[in-house]
C-alpha cells in the first residue's frame, strides 16, 4: 500500500455541501507525478467546486485532499505555494507589460531577485517572446497570452499546475502549441491537472475523469474509456455519460 504522499493529488471522499445542495459528493481519485490528468464534466457538475477545494480556495465539508504533499484543509497556504494555477478567465494583467507580469508572479511566489532575472530571461527565450518583453499583455494575441500565462504559472516550478479551460477560443495551431508546452512540462515531471471543453483534448491526457452531478462517473485512460463505452471518441463518451442515457449513442452516431 502506497502512502498518500506518493501521489501529487490524493483525494478521498471529498465532499462539499452548499446548504442542502451537494455540489461534490464523495469523490475519490489519485494523480501521480508527471501525469496529465483531464478533469471533465458538464457545466454545473461540480468541477469548479472541486478545483477550488484542491487549490485551497474552499474548505471541504468532509473528506480529505492532499495536494503536493499538503492537506488542503489544514495547510491551504502551503498548498497555494506549491501549485500553479491558470484560468481562461483570469491569468495575467492586461495593463502590465509582459516583463512586469512575469516579475509580479515570480515575486508573489517568493523568488529572489536574481532568480527572477534568470527565470524571466529563460522564459522569454523559451517562448520566443524576448522582443515582446516591453509590450502590454493586453496587446498580445490571445494564443500568445495563454502560452505566456502558462509559463508564468510554472515560474516557481510547482509540483502540479491546475489549468482551467486554458485553450478556450484559441486557434487550432496555437492550441496544439499549447499542448506541446503541456507535454514538455509533463515530461519534465510536472503534474498537469486540466479542464477543457474541447473533447479532442481529452485524448491528449494520460487519464481522464468525467464528473456528473457531483460524482466521478468514469475515470480511466482515454483509450479504455472509448473501449468501455464502445465510442469512437471522447466526445461520444462524454455526451453519453453526462446525459446519463445510453440510448442516445445511436442518435449521435447518426448525426455525424
Amino acid at each position: 500500500m502506497r502512502e498518500q504522499n506518493d501521489y501529487i493529488v490524493y483525494v478521498k471522499d471529498l465532499t462539499k455541501v452548499f446548504g442542502d445542495f451537494v455540489a461534490v459528493d464523495k469523490i475519490n481519485f489519485r494523480v501521480e507525478k508527471g501525469e496529465i490528468f483531464g478533469f471533465l464534466g458538464a457545466n454545473g457538475a461540480g468541477k469548479t467546486t472541486a478545483i477550488k477545494m484542491l487549490t485551497g480556495l474552499l474548505a471541504p465539508t468532509s473528506g480529505e485532499a492532499v495536494v503536493a504533499g499538503f492537506d488542503v484543509r489544514r495547510e491551504p497556504e502551503k498548498v497555494k505555494y506549491n501549485i500553479g494555477y491558470m484560468s481562461q478567465k483570469f491569468s495575467l494583467y492586461d495593463d502590465l507589460k509582459v516583463s512586469e507580469n512575469i516579475r509580479l508572479y515570480a515575486g508573489i511566489y517568493g523568488l529572489s531577485r536574481k532568480e527572477i532575472k534568470r527565470k524571466s530571461k529563460a522564459l522569454l527565450e523559451e517562448l520566443n517572446m524576448v522582443a515582446l518583453r516591453d509590450k502590454l499583455v493586453g496587446e498580445l494575441p490571445l494564443g500568445w497570452k495563454q502560452k505566456l500565462a502558462f509559463a508564468v504559472a510554472m515560474i516557481h516550478e510547482p509540483a502540479v499546475v491546475f489549468l482551467d479551460e486554458p485553450t478556450s477560443g484559441v486557434d487550432p495551431i496555437t492550441r496544439r502549441q499549447f499542448w506541446e508546452m503541456i507535454y514538455k512540462a509533463s515530461v519534465a515531471g510536472t503534474t498537469i491537472f486540466i479542464t477543457t471543453h474541447y473533447l479532442d483534448e481529452a485524448e491528449y491526457c494520460t487519464r481522464v475523469s468525467i464528473m456528473v452531478d457531483g460524482v466521478i462517473e468514469a475515470l480511466d485512460t482515454p483509450k479504455n474509456l472509448r473501449l468501455k463505452y464502445g465510442a469512437d471518441n471522447m466526445q461520444e463518451v462524454f455526451v453519453l455519460l453526462a446525459r446519463g442515457e445510453h440510448t442516445l449513442q445511436g442518435k449521435i452516431k447518426k448525426e455525424k
Binding site: G41, A42, N43, A45, E165, S168, G169, H197, L199, Q235, F238, V239, A242, R243, I252
Partner: peptide, 10 residues
C-alpha cells in the same frame, strides 16, 4: 456554444 458543455452543444 462557447463555454457550454458538450451535451448542451449537441
Amino acid at each position: 456554444t462557447t463555454g457550454i458543455d458538450a451535451v448542451s452543444r449537441v
